[in-house]
Design a protein around this nucleic acid. Structure first.
Lengths: 194, 194
DNA sequence: AGGTCTAAATTTAGACCTGAACATAGCATT
DNA sequence: AATGCTATGTTCAGGTCTAAATTTAGACCT
Protein backbone atom coordinates (compact mmCIF):
# COMPACT_ATOMS: atom_id res chain seq x y z
CA UNK A 1 0.00 0.00 0.00
CA UNK A 2 1.43 3.29 -1.04
CA UNK A 3 4.91 1.85 -1.16
CA UNK A 4 7.70 3.21 -3.33
CA UNK A 5 6.70 5.86 -5.81
CA UNK A 6 3.55 6.82 -3.98
CA UNK A 7 3.09 9.77 -1.67
CA UNK A 8 4.62 9.47 1.72
CA UNK A 9 1.60 7.61 2.93
CA UNK A 10 3.94 4.72 3.46
CA UNK A 11 6.18 6.20 6.03
CA UNK A 12 8.70 3.50 6.54
CA UNK A 13 7.22 1.24 9.15
CA UNK A 14 6.31 -1.99 7.44
CA UNK A 15 4.16 -3.32 10.26
CA UNK A 16 2.65 0.09 10.81
CA UNK A 17 -0.77 1.39 9.91
CA UNK A 18 0.21 1.42 6.27
CA UNK A 19 -1.61 3.80 3.98
CA UNK A 20 -4.96 5.42 4.43
CA UNK A 21 -6.81 5.46 7.69
CA UNK A 22 -5.57 2.00 8.57
CA UNK A 23 -7.44 -1.05 9.84
CA UNK A 24 -8.16 -0.79 13.52
CA UNK A 25 -6.21 -3.87 14.46
CA UNK A 26 -3.02 -2.22 13.20
CA UNK A 27 -3.43 0.43 15.87
CA UNK A 28 -3.29 -2.16 18.63
CA UNK A 29 -0.38 -3.84 16.87
CA UNK A 30 1.49 -0.52 16.68
CA UNK A 31 1.09 0.08 20.40
CA UNK A 32 2.30 -3.43 21.15
CA UNK A 33 5.31 -2.92 18.94
CA UNK A 34 6.15 0.51 20.35
CA UNK A 35 5.18 0.01 23.97
CA UNK A 36 4.94 -3.66 24.88
CA UNK A 37 2.45 -4.01 27.68
CA UNK A 38 0.15 -1.19 26.65
CA UNK A 39 -3.39 -2.22 27.63
CA UNK A 40 -4.84 -2.49 24.14
CA UNK A 41 -7.80 -4.71 24.88
CA UNK A 42 -10.40 -1.99 24.39
CA UNK A 43 -9.11 -0.70 21.07
CA UNK A 44 -10.88 -3.25 18.90
CA UNK A 45 -14.20 -1.98 20.20
CA UNK A 46 -13.76 1.66 21.15
CA UNK A 47 -11.86 2.80 18.07
CA UNK A 48 -14.27 1.49 15.44
CA UNK A 49 -17.17 2.93 17.42
CA UNK A 50 -15.57 6.37 17.27
CA UNK A 51 -14.62 6.09 13.66
CA UNK A 52 -18.07 4.89 12.65
CA UNK A 53 -19.70 7.68 14.64
CA UNK A 54 -17.45 10.18 12.88
CA UNK A 55 -18.06 8.81 9.40
CA UNK A 56 -21.80 8.48 9.88
CA UNK A 57 -22.05 11.88 11.55
CA UNK A 58 -20.14 13.64 8.77
CA UNK A 59 -22.29 11.93 6.18
CA UNK A 60 -25.50 12.86 7.94
CA UNK A 61 -24.36 16.47 8.19
CA UNK A 62 -23.74 16.59 4.47
CA UNK A 63 -27.10 15.01 3.65
CA UNK A 64 -28.86 17.50 5.90
CA UNK A 65 -26.91 20.49 4.61
CA UNK A 66 -28.58 19.95 1.27
CA UNK A 67 -31.94 20.18 3.03
CA UNK A 68 -30.88 23.34 4.85
CA UNK A 69 -30.87 21.93 8.38
CA UNK A 70 -28.14 21.02 10.78
CA UNK A 71 -27.95 17.74 12.62
CA UNK A 72 -28.37 19.27 16.07
CA UNK A 73 -31.62 20.95 15.12
CA UNK A 74 -33.01 17.84 13.48
CA UNK A 75 -32.15 15.89 16.60
CA UNK A 76 -34.19 18.32 18.67
CA UNK A 77 -37.13 18.25 16.29
CA UNK A 78 -37.06 14.48 16.01
CA UNK A 79 -37.20 13.97 19.74
CA UNK A 80 -40.26 16.20 19.91
CA UNK A 81 -41.86 14.52 16.91
CA UNK A 82 -41.34 11.05 18.33
CA UNK A 83 -42.86 12.08 21.64
CA UNK A 84 -46.19 12.28 19.83
CA UNK A 85 -48.98 14.84 20.21
CA UNK A 86 -48.92 17.43 21.64
CA UNK A 87 -45.24 17.36 20.62
CA UNK A 88 -44.18 19.07 23.81
CA UNK A 89 -41.38 18.30 26.25
CA UNK A 90 -39.48 20.13 28.97
CA UNK A 91 -35.94 21.27 28.23
CA UNK A 92 -34.78 18.96 30.98
CA UNK A 93 -36.26 15.99 29.20
CA UNK A 94 -34.80 17.14 25.89
CA UNK A 95 -31.33 17.19 27.37
CA UNK A 96 -31.66 13.72 28.78
CA UNK A 97 -32.93 12.26 25.54
CA UNK A 98 -30.32 13.92 23.37
CA UNK A 99 -27.35 13.38 25.68
CA UNK A 100 -26.31 17.03 25.62
CA UNK A 101 -25.78 19.52 28.44
CA UNK A 102 -28.43 21.94 29.68
CA UNK A 103 -26.58 24.80 28.05
CA UNK A 104 -26.60 23.06 24.71
CA UNK A 105 -30.34 22.50 24.96
CA UNK A 106 -30.89 26.16 25.66
CA UNK A 107 -28.90 27.14 22.62
CA UNK A 108 -30.51 24.53 20.37
CA UNK A 109 -33.96 25.63 21.37
CA UNK A 110 -33.06 29.29 20.93
CA UNK A 111 -31.82 28.62 17.40
CA UNK A 112 -34.83 26.53 16.48
CA UNK A 113 -37.17 29.12 17.96
CA UNK A 114 -35.48 31.86 15.95
CA UNK A 115 -36.21 29.82 12.83
CA UNK A 116 -39.82 29.25 13.81
CA UNK A 117 -39.48 25.50 14.27
CA UNK A 118 -40.46 25.36 17.95
CA UNK A 119 -42.06 27.60 20.56
CA UNK A 120 -41.10 28.00 24.18
CA UNK A 121 -43.37 28.74 27.12
CA UNK A 122 -43.22 28.41 30.90
CA UNK A 123 -44.58 25.18 32.31
CA UNK A 124 -46.54 24.50 35.45
CA UNK A 125 -44.58 21.81 37.26
CA UNK A 126 -41.31 22.39 39.03
CA UNK A 127 -39.47 25.61 39.74
CA UNK A 128 -38.59 26.95 36.34
CA UNK A 129 -39.67 24.35 33.83
CA UNK A 130 -39.92 25.42 30.22
CA UNK A 131 -42.05 23.57 27.70
CA UNK A 132 -40.84 23.33 24.14
CA UNK A 133 -43.38 22.57 21.44
CA UNK A 134 -43.00 21.73 17.78
CA UNK A 135 -44.60 24.23 15.37
CA UNK A 136 -46.25 23.23 12.11
CA UNK A 137 -43.10 24.28 10.26
CA UNK A 138 -40.98 22.15 12.55
CA UNK A 139 -43.27 19.21 12.07
CA UNK A 140 -43.06 19.55 8.32
CA UNK A 141 -39.29 19.76 8.37
CA UNK A 142 -39.07 16.48 10.24
CA UNK A 143 -41.46 14.78 7.85
CA UNK A 144 -39.46 16.05 4.89
CA UNK A 145 -36.06 14.89 6.08
CA UNK A 146 -36.23 11.99 8.48
CA UNK A 147 -36.96 9.28 5.94
CA UNK A 148 -34.16 10.55 3.78
CA UNK A 149 -31.68 10.32 6.62
CA UNK A 150 -32.82 6.94 7.88
CA UNK A 151 -32.93 5.47 4.42
CA UNK A 152 -29.41 6.64 3.73
CA UNK A 153 -28.17 5.10 6.92
CA UNK A 154 -29.90 1.81 6.25
CA UNK A 155 -28.01 1.77 2.98
CA UNK A 156 -24.71 2.43 4.69
CA UNK A 157 -25.04 -0.55 6.99
CA UNK A 158 -26.38 -2.86 4.33
CA UNK A 159 -22.99 -4.49 3.98
CA UNK A 160 -23.89 -6.66 6.95
CA UNK A 161 -26.23 -9.59 6.50
CA UNK A 162 -29.52 -9.55 8.36
CA UNK A 163 -28.17 -11.98 10.88
CA UNK A 164 -25.05 -9.92 11.44
CA UNK A 165 -27.17 -6.82 11.94
CA UNK A 166 -29.21 -8.58 14.57
CA UNK A 167 -26.14 -9.82 16.39
CA UNK A 168 -24.55 -6.39 16.29
CA UNK A 169 -27.72 -4.71 17.51
CA UNK A 170 -27.88 -7.08 20.45
CA UNK A 171 -24.27 -6.63 21.45
CA UNK A 172 -24.44 -2.85 21.16
CA UNK A 173 -27.57 -2.79 23.26
CA UNK A 174 -25.86 -4.71 26.03
CA UNK A 175 -22.73 -2.57 25.87
CA UNK A 176 -24.66 0.69 25.84
CA UNK A 177 -26.84 -0.30 28.74
CA UNK A 178 -23.86 -1.43 30.75
CA UNK A 179 -21.81 1.65 29.93
CA UNK A 180 -24.66 3.93 30.98
CA UNK A 181 -24.85 2.10 34.25
CA UNK A 182 -21.15 2.60 34.88
CA UNK A 183 -21.17 6.32 34.11
CA UNK A 184 -23.43 8.44 36.27
CA UNK A 185 -26.82 6.88 36.65
CA UNK A 186 -28.20 10.34 36.03
CA UNK A 187 -29.42 9.72 32.56
CA UNK A 188 -30.40 6.14 33.16
CA UNK A 189 -33.82 4.62 32.95
CA UNK A 190 -34.50 3.51 36.47
CA UNK A 191 -36.62 0.79 35.04
CA UNK A 192 -38.17 -0.46 38.20
CA UNK A 193 -38.50 1.89 41.10
CA UNK A 194 -38.50 5.67 41.38
CA UNK B 1 -47.24 15.18 31.57
CA UNK B 2 -44.89 16.16 34.31
CA UNK B 3 -46.93 13.79 36.41
CA UNK B 4 -47.24 15.01 39.94
CA UNK B 5 -44.97 13.11 42.27
CA UNK B 6 -42.51 11.72 39.77
CA UNK B 7 -39.94 13.82 38.08
CA UNK B 8 -41.22 14.52 34.61
CA UNK B 9 -39.16 11.66 33.37
CA UNK B 10 -42.39 9.86 32.74
CA UNK B 11 -44.03 12.21 30.31
CA UNK B 12 -47.28 10.54 29.52
CA UNK B 13 -46.63 8.27 26.60
CA UNK B 14 -46.66 4.80 28.02
CA UNK B 15 -45.02 3.17 25.02
CA UNK B 16 -42.71 6.11 24.59
CA UNK B 17 -39.07 6.37 25.49
CA UNK B 18 -40.06 6.46 29.12
CA UNK B 19 -37.71 8.11 31.56
CA UNK B 20 -34.04 8.84 31.17
CA UNK B 21 -32.22 8.51 27.93
CA UNK B 22 -34.37 5.59 26.89
CA UNK B 23 -33.43 2.20 25.48
CA UNK B 24 -32.63 2.45 21.80
CA UNK B 25 -35.33 0.06 20.75
CA UNK B 26 -37.94 2.45 22.08
CA UNK B 27 -36.82 5.02 19.56
CA UNK B 28 -37.64 2.74 16.67
CA UNK B 29 -40.92 1.82 18.36
CA UNK B 30 -41.80 5.50 18.73
CA UNK B 31 -41.21 6.17 15.04
CA UNK B 32 -43.33 3.18 14.12
CA UNK B 33 -46.10 4.38 16.36
CA UNK B 34 -45.97 7.96 15.14
CA UNK B 35 -45.16 7.41 11.49
CA UNK B 36 -45.92 3.88 10.39
CA UNK B 37 -43.60 2.98 7.54
CA UNK B 38 -40.62 5.01 8.72
CA UNK B 39 -37.48 3.11 7.67
CA UNK B 40 -36.21 2.27 11.14
CA UNK B 41 -33.97 -0.65 10.28
CA UNK B 42 -30.72 1.22 10.88
CA UNK B 43 -31.64 2.65 14.27
CA UNK B 44 -30.65 -0.39 16.30
CA UNK B 45 -27.11 -0.03 15.04
CA UNK B 46 -26.52 3.64 14.28
CA UNK B 47 -28.05 5.11 17.42
CA UNK B 48 -26.12 3.05 19.96
CA UNK B 49 -22.93 3.73 18.04
CA UNK B 50 -23.51 7.46 18.37
CA UNK B 51 -24.52 7.27 21.97
CA UNK B 52 -21.56 5.11 22.90
CA UNK B 53 -19.20 7.44 21.05
CA UNK B 54 -20.68 10.37 22.93
CA UNK B 55 -20.50 8.70 26.34
CA UNK B 56 -16.99 7.37 25.82
CA UNK B 57 -15.79 10.65 24.32
CA UNK B 58 -17.16 12.72 27.19
CA UNK B 59 -15.60 10.36 29.68
CA UNK B 60 -12.23 10.45 27.97
CA UNK B 61 -12.32 14.23 27.89
CA UNK B 62 -12.93 14.34 31.63
CA UNK B 63 -10.14 11.86 32.35
CA UNK B 64 -7.71 13.87 30.23
CA UNK B 65 -8.79 17.21 31.66
CA UNK B 66 -7.37 16.06 34.97
CA UNK B 67 -4.06 15.42 33.21
CA UNK B 68 -4.19 18.85 31.57
CA UNK B 69 -4.56 17.68 27.96
CA UNK B 70 -7.43 17.70 25.55
CA UNK B 71 -8.50 14.70 23.54
CA UNK B 72 -7.65 16.23 20.16
CA UNK B 73 -4.07 16.90 21.17
CA UNK B 74 -3.60 13.45 22.64
CA UNK B 75 -4.96 11.98 19.43
CA UNK B 76 -2.32 13.86 17.46
CA UNK B 77 0.49 12.87 19.79
CA UNK B 78 -0.63 9.24 19.89
CA UNK B 79 -0.59 8.91 16.14
CA UNK B 80 2.95 10.23 16.06
CA UNK B 81 4.01 8.03 18.96
CA UNK B 82 2.58 4.90 17.36
CA UNK B 83 4.33 5.64 14.11
CA UNK B 84 7.58 4.84 15.90
CA UNK B 85 10.97 6.57 15.60
CA UNK B 86 11.63 9.15 14.30
CA UNK B 87 8.05 10.03 15.36
CA UNK B 88 7.51 12.13 12.29
CA UNK B 89 4.60 12.30 9.82
CA UNK B 90 3.30 14.73 7.24
CA UNK B 91 0.20 16.74 8.05
CA UNK B 92 -1.53 14.97 5.19
CA UNK B 93 -0.93 11.63 6.80
CA UNK B 94 -2.03 12.94 10.19
CA UNK B 95 -5.34 14.01 8.74
CA UNK B 96 -5.96 10.67 7.15
CA UNK B 97 -5.17 8.74 10.29
CA UNK B 98 -7.22 10.94 12.58
CA UNK B 99 -10.20 11.36 10.26
CA UNK B 100 -10.21 15.14 10.52
CA UNK B 101 -10.02 17.85 7.85
CA UNK B 102 -6.80 19.50 6.73
CA UNK B 103 -7.82 22.68 8.51
CA UNK B 104 -8.31 20.82 11.76
CA UNK B 105 -4.85 19.27 11.44
CA UNK B 106 -3.32 22.70 10.92
CA UNK B 107 -5.00 23.99 14.06
CA UNK B 108 -4.17 20.94 16.14
CA UNK B 109 -0.53 21.10 15.16
CA UNK B 110 -0.38 24.84 15.79
CA UNK B 111 -1.76 24.36 19.29
CA UNK B 112 0.56 21.47 20.07
CA UNK B 113 3.53 23.39 18.72
CA UNK B 114 2.65 26.38 20.87
CA UNK B 115 2.78 24.06 23.87
CA UNK B 116 6.10 22.58 22.84
CA UNK B 117 4.73 19.09 22.17
CA UNK B 118 5.66 18.88 18.49
CA UNK B 119 7.83 20.73 15.99
CA UNK B 120 7.01 21.58 12.39
CA UNK B 121 9.41 21.83 9.46
CA UNK B 122 9.16 21.78 5.67
CA UNK B 123 9.55 18.37 4.06
CA UNK B 124 11.30 17.34 0.88
CA UNK B 125 8.65 15.47 -1.10
CA UNK B 126 5.68 17.14 -2.78
CA UNK B 127 4.89 20.81 -3.18
CA UNK B 128 4.26 22.04 0.31
CA UNK B 129 4.59 19.06 2.58
CA UNK B 130 5.15 19.76 6.25
CA UNK B 131 6.71 17.26 8.63
CA UNK B 132 5.48 17.15 12.19
CA UNK B 133 7.70 15.58 14.82
CA UNK B 134 7.09 14.71 18.44
CA UNK B 135 9.30 16.53 20.96
CA UNK B 136 10.61 14.94 24.14
CA UNK B 137 7.86 16.71 26.08
CA UNK B 138 5.23 15.37 23.70
CA UNK B 139 6.65 11.88 24.00
CA UNK B 140 6.52 12.08 27.77
CA UNK B 141 2.96 13.30 27.77
CA UNK B 142 1.84 10.32 25.74
CA UNK B 143 3.66 7.90 28.02
CA UNK B 144 2.09 9.52 31.05
CA UNK B 145 -1.51 9.40 29.85
CA UNK B 146 -2.14 6.70 27.30
CA UNK B 147 -2.20 3.75 29.69
CA UNK B 148 -4.55 5.63 31.94
CA UNK B 149 -6.99 6.24 29.09
CA UNK B 150 -6.82 2.74 27.67
CA UNK B 151 -7.14 1.14 31.05
CA UNK B 152 -10.21 3.20 31.83
CA UNK B 153 -11.82 2.21 28.56
CA UNK B 154 -11.07 -1.44 29.05
CA UNK B 155 -12.91 -1.12 32.33
CA UNK B 156 -15.90 0.52 30.68
CA UNK B 157 -16.39 -2.33 28.23
CA UNK B 158 -15.75 -5.04 30.77
CA UNK B 159 -19.48 -5.69 31.05
CA UNK B 160 -19.19 -7.88 27.97
CA UNK B 161 -17.76 -11.35 28.25
CA UNK B 162 -14.57 -12.13 26.39
CA UNK B 163 -16.53 -13.95 23.75
CA UNK B 164 -18.95 -11.07 23.30
CA UNK B 165 -16.05 -8.67 22.96
CA UNK B 166 -14.56 -10.79 20.22
CA UNK B 167 -17.84 -11.03 18.37
CA UNK B 168 -18.42 -7.32 18.65
CA UNK B 169 -14.90 -6.51 17.49
CA UNK B 170 -15.36 -8.69 14.43
CA UNK B 171 -18.71 -7.21 13.47
CA UNK B 172 -17.52 -3.65 13.95
CA UNK B 173 -14.47 -4.35 11.84
CA UNK B 174 -16.62 -5.57 8.99
CA UNK B 175 -19.04 -2.67 9.28
CA UNK B 176 -16.28 -0.06 9.46
CA UNK B 177 -14.45 -1.48 6.51
CA UNK B 178 -17.62 -1.63 4.44
CA UNK B 179 -18.73 1.86 5.45
CA UNK B 180 -15.37 3.32 4.49
CA UNK B 181 -15.66 1.68 1.13
CA UNK B 182 -19.08 3.22 0.56
CA UNK B 183 -18.05 6.75 1.53
CA UNK B 184 -15.30 8.33 -0.52
CA UNK B 185 -12.51 5.88 -1.08
CA UNK B 186 -10.17 8.74 -0.24
CA UNK B 187 -9.28 7.57 3.16
CA UNK B 188 -9.52 3.91 2.38
CA UNK B 189 -6.81 1.35 2.40
CA UNK B 190 -6.85 0.22 -1.19
CA UNK B 191 -6.09 -3.26 -0.05
CA UNK B 192 -5.26 -4.77 -3.35
CA UNK B 193 -4.36 -2.58 -6.26
CA UNK B 194 -3.15 0.97 -6.45
C1' DA C 1 12.71 29.72 -20.10
C1' DG C 2 8.14 31.41 -18.92
C1' DG C 3 3.45 30.94 -17.98
C1' DT C 4 -0.10 27.92 -16.35
C1' DC C 5 -1.75 24.10 -13.44
C1' DT C 6 -2.10 21.34 -9.56
C1' DA C 7 -1.70 19.90 -4.98
C1' DA C 8 -1.00 21.05 -0.29
C1' DA C 9 -1.17 23.78 3.80
C1' DT C 10 -3.06 27.73 6.18
C1' DT C 11 -6.44 31.18 7.24
C1' DT C 12 -11.06 32.64 8.04
C1' DA C 13 -15.99 32.54 9.02
C1' DG C 14 -19.60 30.13 11.09
C1' DA C 15 -21.55 26.45 14.06
C1' DC C 16 -21.80 23.71 18.07
C1' DC C 17 -20.79 22.03 22.64
C1' DT C 18 -19.11 21.87 27.53
C1' DG C 19 -18.50 23.78 32.11
C1' DA C 20 -19.02 27.38 35.10
C1' DA C 21 -21.28 31.43 36.64
C1' DC C 22 -25.75 33.47 37.14
C1' DA C 23 -30.78 34.27 38.01
C1' DT C 24 -35.02 32.56 39.93
C1' DA C 25 -39.31 29.98 41.22
C1' DG C 26 -41.26 27.03 44.59
C1' DC C 27 -40.45 24.16 48.87
C1' DA C 28 -39.08 23.10 53.46
C1' DT C 29 -37.84 24.30 57.86
C1' DT C 30 -37.97 26.89 61.92
C1' DA D 1 -44.84 33.60 57.69
C1' DA D 2 -40.06 34.48 56.57
C1' DT D 3 -35.78 32.72 55.11
C1' DG D 4 -32.70 29.70 53.13
C1' DC D 5 -32.37 25.64 49.93
C1' DT D 6 -32.51 23.35 45.81
C1' DA D 7 -33.62 22.39 41.26
C1' DT D 8 -33.81 24.53 36.69
C1' DG D 9 -33.02 27.34 32.73
C1' DT D 10 -29.93 30.82 30.63
C1' DT D 11 -25.71 33.21 29.61
C1' DC D 12 -20.88 33.42 28.77
C1' DA D 13 -16.10 32.18 27.83
C1' DG D 14 -13.26 28.93 25.70
C1' DG D 15 -12.31 25.36 22.58
C1' DT D 16 -12.91 22.37 18.38
C1' DC D 17 -14.51 21.27 14.00
C1' DT D 18 -15.90 21.86 8.93
C1' DA D 19 -16.05 24.17 4.55
C1' DA D 20 -14.54 27.67 1.71
C1' DA D 21 -11.19 31.05 0.35
C1' DT D 22 -6.27 31.99 0.08
C1' DT D 23 -1.41 31.24 -0.58
C1' DT D 24 2.37 28.94 -2.52
C1' DA D 25 5.83 25.37 -4.12
C1' DG D 26 6.82 22.41 -7.78
C1' DA D 27 5.49 20.24 -12.31
C1' DC D 28 4.14 20.51 -17.03
C1' DC D 29 3.77 22.24 -21.53
C1' DT D 30 5.07 25.01 -25.56
Amino acid sequence: MAREALPESGDGHPADEGGGSCPVQDIAAAWERERPGTPVSSIGIVTPIWQLAKLLGDDRRRVLARAGVDAATLDLLSVLRRAGAPYTLTTRELGRRSLVSAGAVSQRVARAEREGLVTRRPGAGRPRTVLVELTAAGHELVEATVDQVLHREAELISGLTGEQQEQLTGLLRILLQDTRRRLGDDRITHVGQE
